[in-house]
Amino acid sequence: MKHYEVEILDAKTREKLCFLDKVEPHATIAEIKNLFTKTHPQWYPARQSLRLDPKGKSLKDEDVLQKLPVGTTATLYFRDLGAQISWVTVFLTEYAGPLFIYLLFYFRVPFIYGHKYDFTSSRHTVVHLACICHSFHYIKRLLETLFVHRFSHGTMPLRNIFKNCTYYWGFAAWMAYYINHPLYTPPTYGAQQVKLALAIFVICQLGNFSIHMALRDLRPAGSKTRKIPYPTKNPFTWLFLLVSCPNYTYEVGSWIGFAIMTQCLPVALFSLVGFTQMTIWAKGKHRSYLKEFRDYPPLRMPIIPFLL
């Protein structure tokens, strides 16, 4: 059985960083990364991007050496992705923050609204209902991160945790300040508006959870398998008939419901920014589905049925 020789060059300087002799033909890129780490321990596998061309796409960890368009002496180019952190850690951090930050404003801890309001309670029912909904949303997200989601990528750049936390924590503080303010004004149409908004919120939260469970069942634990998601017997998953990412559709719907319930401008802005970002993600995933699966359902749109 022939063996391969693998040289790894710096993608920027073309400097030879490592030479691997007698590499098995069936070795994966993940195994080559581990061998590279032995000579350069500062670059652990998650930091490494190996590619066939200095400006090309990163090879997948599961790619097999003998199936790549290389000879028995293969040249790979290395790029440092920077310090990495696990997706689970990032999600837990960015979701735990809003949960606790919101509660600080809800309980009106000292130095927020003035001494005479310390630890007082709002007289408006919608304020307490909003706290329950907000807390439920982020507790749900935390539990899904721990027990439901299966991540195709193990890590992301460390800098992302600061960007994500600034976004989630900042908006949580902004909306919580106004919703729990002693001078907060309840919704214009009173109980009817709150009940309608609560119904929207609850339905969308159930829908979002149902989609996450359906997506989880598509991917076996520990794998990166991708399949076309289809509706199940659960009615909340029937939205798969019309959109590629109904989890985002339901998520946006939840925040629209919360915005109607609280009639709070920061919540509306958070919903708008979230919708914009999720639309970008949904379009990317939709394109990926179309590219990977020739039999992908043609009627589906990325996030909004028939429109977007």
Rank of each mutant, 00 (worst) to 15 (best):
K2S: 08
H3T: 01
E5D: 09
E7H: 01
I8P: 02
D10P: 13
A11I: 05
T13V: 05
K16G: 09
C18Y: 08
C18I: 05
F19Q: 07
F19G: 05
F19E: 06
L20I: 11
L20N: 05
K22H: 02
A27F: 13
T28K: 05
T28D: 01
A30P: 11
E31F: 08
K33M: 03
H40N: 01
Q42S: 05
A46R: 13
Q48M: 01
R51G: 07
D53G: 10
D61F: 11
D61H: 11
K67T: 13
L68I: 07
L68T: 00
L68V: 07
G71A: 06
T72L: 00
T73A: 11
T75G: 05
Y77N: 10
D80N: 11
A83S: 06
W87Y: 05
W87T: 03
L92H: 01
T93W: 01
Y95S: 05
A96D: 10
A96G: 06
G97R: 02
L99Q: 11
F105D: 14
F107I: 00
F107K: 02
R108H: 13
V109A: 11
F111S: 09
F111W: 06
F111P: 12
Y113N: 09
G114W: 08
T120F: 03
S122R: 08
H124Q: 11
H128N: 03
H128V: 05
A130G: 14
C131D: 02
C133T: 02
H134F: 07
S135Y: 00
F136R: 00
L142N: 14
L142P: 06
L142T: 14
L146Y: 04
V148L: 10
V148I: 14
S152T: 06
G154D: 08
G154N: 06
P157Y: 04
R159G: 12
N160G: 02
C165W: 07
Y168C: 02
W169E: 02
F171V: 08
F171I: 13
A173N: 12
M175V: 10
A176E: 04
H181Y: 06
H181R: 09
T185A: 12
P186H: 04
P187A: 05
T188K: 15
G190V: 09
G190S: 12
Q193V: 14
Q193M: 01
K195R: 11
K195T: 10
A197V: 09
A197E: 00
L198Q: 03
V202A: 12
I203N: 02
Q205W: 10
F209T: 01
S210D: 00
I211L: 03
H212M: 02
A214I: 15
G222C: 02
S223P: 09
R226M: 07
R226V: 03
K227Y: 15
K227R: 12
I228P: 05
T232I: 07
K233R: 10
N234P: 00
T237A: 06
W238C: 11
S244L: 14
P246S: 05
N247K: 06
N247I: 11
V252T: 05
I256P: 02
I256S: 11
I256V: 10
G257T: 14
A259D: 08
A259P: 04
M261V: 07
M261N: 03
M261A: 01
T262K: 07
C264W: 03
V267M: 11
F270S: 07
S271F: 10
Q277K: 03
K285C: 03
K285G: 06
Y289N: 11
E292P: 01
R294H: 01
Y296I: 08
P297S: 07
P302R: 06
P302F: 10
